[in-house]
Simulated scan of single mutants.
Amino acid sequence: MEGNQNFQHILERFQQADLQQKIEIYTTVQGLSVEQFKELLRYFPIKHLGELEKAMG
Rank of each mutant, 00 (worst) to 15 (best):
Q15V: 08
L52T: 01
I23H: 01
T28V: 11
Q15K: 15
Y26H: 09
H48Y: 13
E53L: 12
G50H: 11
L49R: 13
A55L: 04
V34G: 02
L19D: 01
A55I: 08
K22Q: 14
T28R: 14
P45Q: 05
I25S: 06
K22F: 01
V29M: 11
H9V: 06
Q30Y: 00
L11A: 07
K54Y: 13
E39G: 05
I10D: 08
G3N: 09
P45S: 03
M56I: 11
S33I: 05
I46A: 12
Q15R: 14
N6F: 15
E53S: 05
Q16L: 14
Q30M: 09
L49S: 06
L52P: 01
H48K: 11
F14I: 03
E35R: 13
M1Y: 04
L41F: 09
R42M: 08
E51I: 07
T27L: 07
K54G: 14
G57D: 13
Q21C: 01
N4R: 10
Q21P: 02
L49E: 04
E12S: 11
F44E: 00
L52D: 03
A17C: 10
T27S: 15
F44C: 02
Q36F: 13
R42D: 01
V34M: 10
A55S: 12
I23D: 00
Q36N: 10
R13E: 15
Q8A: 15
N6W: 11
M1V: 05
E51D: 15
H48F: 11
L32H: 04
I46Y: 09
F44A: 03
M56G: 07
K54C: 13
I10S: 06
L19H: 02
E53N: 03
S33E: 01
D18Q: 09
Q15T: 02
G57P: 00
L11F: 08
Q36G: 06
S33V: 07
E24I: 03
E51R: 12
F14A: 04
H48G: 01
E35V: 14
K47Q: 13
I10W: 07
E51L: 15
Q30A: 13
A55K: 01
M56A: 13
L19V: 08
V34P: 00
G31E: 01
E53T: 05
K47N: 10
H9F: 09
L32E: 00
E24N: 11
V29S: 13
K38Q: 11
G3F: 02
A55P: 05
Q36V: 09
N6I: 11
A17T: 05
Q21S: 12
V29T: 15
M1L: 08
Q15D: 02
P45R: 03
F37V: 04
K22T: 02
A17Q: 04
G57C: 06
E2W: 12
F14D: 07
Q5C: 08
E39K: 15
L41K: 14
Q15P: 02
Q5E: 14
K22P: 07
Q15Y: 01
F14T: 05
L19F: 03
E24F: 10
R13D: 15
Y26T: 04
I10R: 02
A17I: 09
L40D: 00
Q5T: 08
S33Y: 04
N6L: 11
K38Y: 02
F44W: 02
L40S: 05
A55N: 03
E24R: 12
